[in-house]
């Protein structure tokens, strides 16, 4: 990966001449797929419902960006339908909800259900906010990923997503 990043600007004209020359001599070309761009982790960060507490979501979104993720931030007042529609269009790896309103027991299951309906159940649903321990367990039982409460360090959340991502198949096209 190191070189993919550090590679210098190529000399297009010179190389095109070389290319045209070889092409004219009928030398066969075999594509080299070794050098690929680093695979970016894409995360949707959303605030569902009427909950106006957006500090945590913003902190988390910036932390994810600083960790090298591509973060799609949709802002406040998202319905589960809006969240899933955005997750599909953006082909994110992770859907991350921030819920401080107390409505987590309806919001998380609903988003999970809609993701499944949309054929997007390969995505990780995670999040945080004010969520009691027993609710976190109940949601985990439904298939929701880890949920992070107040005082979470952003490194914990970043590490969790990285580790999850590394366990996923890398050629996701299906």
């Amino acid at each position: 990966m190191g070189h993919a990043r550090a590679r210098p600007a190529i000399l297009p004209d010179a190389i095109i001449l070389v290319w045209l020359h070889l092409r004219s001599q009928g030398i066969a070309a075999t594509p080299n797929t070794e050098i690929l761009m680093e695979r970016k982790i894409r995360v949707l960060v959303a605030k569902p419902g009427l909950d106006g507490h957006d500090r945590g979501a913003k902190v988390i979104a910036s932390a994810f960006r600083d960790a090298g993720f591509e973060v799609i931030y949709t802002g406040l007042h998202q319905t589960p339908e809006m969240i899933v529609s955005a997750a599909v269009q953006e082909d994110v790896d992770v859907v991350a909800l921030s819920v401080l309103s107390g409505a987590h027991m309806t919001l998380f299951p609903r988003v999970l259900e809609l993701l499944r309906e949309a054929g997007a159940d390969h995505m990780l649903l995670t999040g945080g906010g004010i969520i009691p321990e027993e609710d976190i367990e109940a949601l985990a039982g439904l298939g929701v990923g880890r949920l992070f409460g107040p005082g979470t360090t952003t490194t914990e959340a970043v590490a969790y997503i990285r580790e999850w991502s590394e366990r996923q198949p890398q050629d996701l096209v299906g």
Binding site: V71, Y73, T74
Partner: peptide
């Protein structure tokens, strides 16, 4: 960081 904060959707809700 190589990361990005993509916020255009906020205006397209």
């Amino acid at each position: 960081s190589g990361g990005a904060l993509l916020g255009d959707r906020i205006r397209m809700n």
